[in-house]
Each structure stands twice: as C-alpha cells, then as structure tokens.
Simulated scan of single mutants.
Amino acid sequence: MKLQFLTPLYAHPGPIASAYLDTSRDRDDPDRAVESRWRKLRRSLLAHDAEQATVEAIADAVGTDREVAGPHGQAVFAAHGKLVLAETLPEPPARDTALYGMLPDTLSLALQHAPDIPYTVVILHRVHVPERTAGRPAGHGGPDEELEIDSESGRWPTSRVAPGARSHRRIPVDGWPEAVERLVGELVTEMDAAGTEMVVVAGDPWAVNSLMRAAPSRLHGAFVKLKDGQHRRREPGRALLEEELAILLDGRLSERDRHQVDTFLAQRARHPEYVEGCAAGVAALQRGQAQTLILSRPVRLHRHLWVGAAPVHLALTGEELSAFGLHYYWEEPAPGAALIRAAAGTQAELICVPDEELPIEDGVAVVLRYTGS
C-alpha cells in the first residue's frame, strides 16, 4: 500500500496534535456521545501544552462525518492553529486517543487504509415500469421492463465510509445487448486506470451472466458473482454491498502486496539479518533502502526510537544519530509514528500481515530495494 495520502501531515514541522475518536451513529443521541468523547481528548491535549488554536481547529472538524451511518471513527490532525487532515475511519478506534508531539500519530490511520484493494461493484436489477404498459394487451412482456444499473468503485477498506462516485442508470431490457458493450468498455477503462483487482457483480442472473461473457478474457478472473442478488438499501455514506465486500476482502492482501511478501520470504531465506526485526527495519529505512515496510497485525512495537527532523533520521539510540553528526534529535515515544514517517518519506510502501500468517521478529520487517549480494 502506498502512503502518499499521509503527505499533508509531513509538509510542515511539528508540533502537531493527533486525535482519534469513535464517531459512530448507531446509538442514541450520537452527537452528545461524540461531544463527550471529544471533551476528554480536549483536556488531554491542553494538559500536554497543545496550542489553544490548534485544539480549536480539531474541535471544528470533530463530528463533521455525521452524514456517515453506522459504526465508524475519525482521525483529525492539526498544527499551528490550522487543520491539516481529517479522515473518516471505517472502524471506530479501539480507544479514543489524543497526542501532541513533534510527529503526527499516523500508525492507526495507516493501518485503517490497509490493504487498499481497488475494486468495482456492479448491481443489475430488472424493474417493471407500469406506465409503459398502458394500452398494451395483458401479458405483454419485454418493453415494460427496464434494467436498473448501479456501479461504484472504491479502495477497500476506506471505501466503507468514503465510497467513490456512484453511477446509476436505467435502460429498457431490450436495449441491454447494446448497453452491455458500453458498460464493459467503461469497466475496462476504469480497471486499467485504477488497477482494479475485483469486479463484484450481483442481481438479475441473465444480465449478470451476459455482462461477464461480454468482458475480455483477460478480465474473467477478476469477476466475482454473488449468489444473493437481493437489492438492499445502502446506508448513507456507506459502500454498496459493504457486508459482502467485507466477506470477500477482509484479511486479503492486494496482488502487489502478495508479490512483495513472496520477495520478502526469498530475501529472508538468504539474509534474515537484513530484512527481519526492528533493528533491520530501522537500518533499511535509515538508508532509504526499504522498498516496503511490513508490520504484523496486531502491531506490537515495544521499544522507543530516536528521530530527527528528516524521515531518514531514525535510529535505535540517540548516540547513533549523534554519530551521524546530528545535533537536534529526540526520543520518540510512538515508534509506529517514527516508522511510518520514515516509510512515507522514503517512498516505501506498507504491508500489514496477520501475525498467525507471517510471524516476524519484533513484528517488523522490510523488503529491500536492492541487496548487496
């Protein structure tokens, strides 16, 4: 997963305030619950010497995701009295947190973006149009029916609460043979541009099957046909077929991530000391040699790291940074924030893998851009 979405957070020097809180709407009086949660975080930020203007910038953003139904959360960042970034989270945070420090607390936000799988949903439903049957003999078929076509693309799992543009159209059933060619052309263009890995189709069996047959053979493996074609109402601000997508995509890696994990396994077999463990990860990021940072889920980072002003100013001890000639550095209490900043700042990607699927020392590993042998 690429980390460019974090770029705004590193565009200005700290200190920066980071807040994560549950802003779910599936409860009685959700606005009051969100306000109560925010008051506790506000007190924490002010107690840690956050600027009043910076705290107010976060306050103005908290709860602005109220149009999103169901359980979710919010991550909000502000610095020097201005809002830097506010994102709706697909899952409420495990606990509300607020930090004020030199680095933004980006680990939880990055984890909620992973695995960042691009997909498209297409729902096809046959609907009757009574007004078109006026004056026709009883039992007349075909022209009194239309196909309702809903499509939506996104990147899982953030699309659960930030779905992409949705297309909605209706066409006569007898015009479907021509329309399906246009729809396939649109899908191919979108898939090639976005790197779409999965097209989930549901609804009328005849229309679904003809859509899949019309697609070029190179895309056949990307289609997933759902047996349940019932048309359910989408909750406001939520993705189409969210429940079905969760079954298909939760715990899955993107194709690129799977290839990179294979590369890591090959590198570990040859030189484990260079690619596995916190020390190896820090050394690779420090040199800008990491193509990808791999973290275990659940993340377990127990040691503090030392950092300086630049992303590559990362070390296990302050003495190491001093030996590099740095005069300004500090012990960073949030090691995840230090690792994510180093990865984003050196254009490394991020992969999160369940610990039971890929046990790694310290829960940290890297894929190297190049090796010495």
Rank of each mutant, 00 (worst) to 15 (best):
H220Y: 02
V180D: 10
Q230W: 05
P236R: 03
A215C: 10
E186M: 15
R136G: 04
L241I: 05
L219M: 08
R232F: 01
P137D: 14
D174A: 13
M191G: 11
V224L: 06
A222E: 07
G135V: 11
R160V: 02
A179L: 15
R160W: 05
H140S: 03
L211R: 03
W206G: 09
M198N: 14
W156S: 04
P163L: 05
P177H: 09
N209H: 14
I171R: 09
A207G: 04
E145Q: 15
P137R: 11
E181Q: 11
D228F: 08
F223Y: 07
L183I: 05
E190S: 15
F223K: 06
F223C: 05
S159N: 09
K225C: 04
T189G: 13
V201H: 00
V199C: 05
E235G: 02
R166G: 02
G154S: 13
R232W: 05
H231W: 15
E148S: 15
H220K: 03
E235N: 00
G154Q: 07
V184I: 05
S159T: 04
A193L: 08
G185T: 11
P236I: 00
P172M: 14
A202Q: 03
M198D: 06
M198V: 01
E242D: 12
H220T: 10
R238Q: 01
V200T: 07
G221L: 09
K227S: 14
A222C: 12
R136C: 00
D174K: 12
A239N: 06
N209P: 12
E242A: 12
L226K: 06
V180G: 10
R166Y: 02
L147V: 07
G237I: 01
P172R: 13
V224M: 00
P172V: 13
G139W: 11
F223W: 06
A222Y: 11
G135Q: 02
P143W: 14
G142L: 12
G135N: 01
G135R: 08
I149D: 00
V200S: 04
P205N: 12
T158M: 12
A222N: 15
V208H: 03
V224P: 00
R182Y: 04
S210M: 06
E148N: 13
E235T: 00
P205W: 11
I171G: 02
A215D: 08
A239L: 09
P172Y: 15
D144M: 12
L187A: 03
L226Y: 14
P177D: 03
R232K: 03
S151G: 06
L147C: 02
P216H: 07
G175V: 00
D150E: 13
P137F: 12
L219S: 07
S153P: 07
S159A: 10
L183H: 04
A215V: 04
P205L: 11
W206V: 15
M191T: 01
R136V: 01
V188C: 09
A193Q: 15
L240W: 00
M212F: 04
E148C: 12
V161A: 12
E178T: 14
A215I: 08
V199A: 01
G185H: 05
N209T: 09
S167V: 04
R213A: 13
E235D: 10
L211W: 06
D192W: 02
